[in-house]
Nucleic acid binder design. Structure first.
Lengths: 130, 130
DNA sequence: CTAAAACCTGACGTTGACGTCAGAGGCAAG
DNA sequence: CTTGCCTCTGACGTCAACGTCAGGTTTTAG
């Protein structure tokens, strides 16, 4: 969707933003935003002179992408899952992938918590051992 | 410590093991074990012919190293923290590092849990939306 | 109008924990 | 003795998400 509904039923076209604003608002580098496009995660429009133009909600999308990266998903996986994310429906294969990623992240959380416990042991020992 | 105390107060020298056994028992590759040495995490003895010889408890140490890697620590950080781990005492700088790493891992856990929540949202929507 | 700031397209560099290959020994069994 | 497995030392390759630089165009502020 390109248009947003404003007051009195008038359809107002939100101003498209350029790559610098996307990057700044989402807290990533301009290079990163271009990279996401190269990976098929973003499909910006282009101005007459060739500059990338994004809808404002791209900022939210970029934050989501970053969150998935932080969770250990690859660009390819994110690209495969984005359709479910913004279309709202998915095929059995995608559902299986979603669940598989969920399990992987859950396992990672468990590993990190175990590592935390190990570190806490060391901290406890070294705190009582001046 | 090189020796292990056996029955009747007799000091028994545990047989040293070679790199293949360390790798197999710890569930990593031989290459990884050599890499750990290169990073200063392991200091094996050498046989007359130059082969690496490890104490059996090296297997436990390698598992610990793997756990720290999984938690996002670098080789350098692990090398800096290993002294506290097996000496049992540490200076203020090391204590600060321990706590900093703890906080970093905790933050990572929080990020992963947030990502899990996002994925669960998508899963819930796509499950009710055939 | 002009200078600064932002944007463009390549294309090579970085980082970390290894994988992998080459070529050369070492070691117990038959 | 030789076969087969293990080990050794380099040294280059990998992968992913960007960083960074070069050289040029575009937009914006004054």
């Amino acid at each position: 969707m390109i248009a947003d509904t404003g007051v009195r039923g008038v359809t107002v076209t939100e101003p498209l933003i350029r790559i610098g604003e996307v990057a700044r608002d989402a807290g990533v580098s301009v290079r990163a935003v271009r990279y996401y496009e190269q990976q098929g995660l973003l499909l910006p429009r282009r101005s007459a002179s060739g500059q990338r133009l994004y809808r404002p909600d791209t900022v939210t999308l970029v934050r989501f992408i970053q969150q998935m990266y932080a969770a250990g998903l690859t660009s390819r996986r994110i690209a495969e899952l984005l359709p479910c994310w913004d279309s709202g429906h998915t095929d059995p294969g995608q559902r299986a992938m979603l669940r598989a990623e969920r399990e992987r992240i859950q396992a990672k959380v468990d590993d990190l918590r175990a590592a935390l416990d190990r570190l806490d042991e060391v901290i406890a020992i070294t705190d009582t051992h001046p």
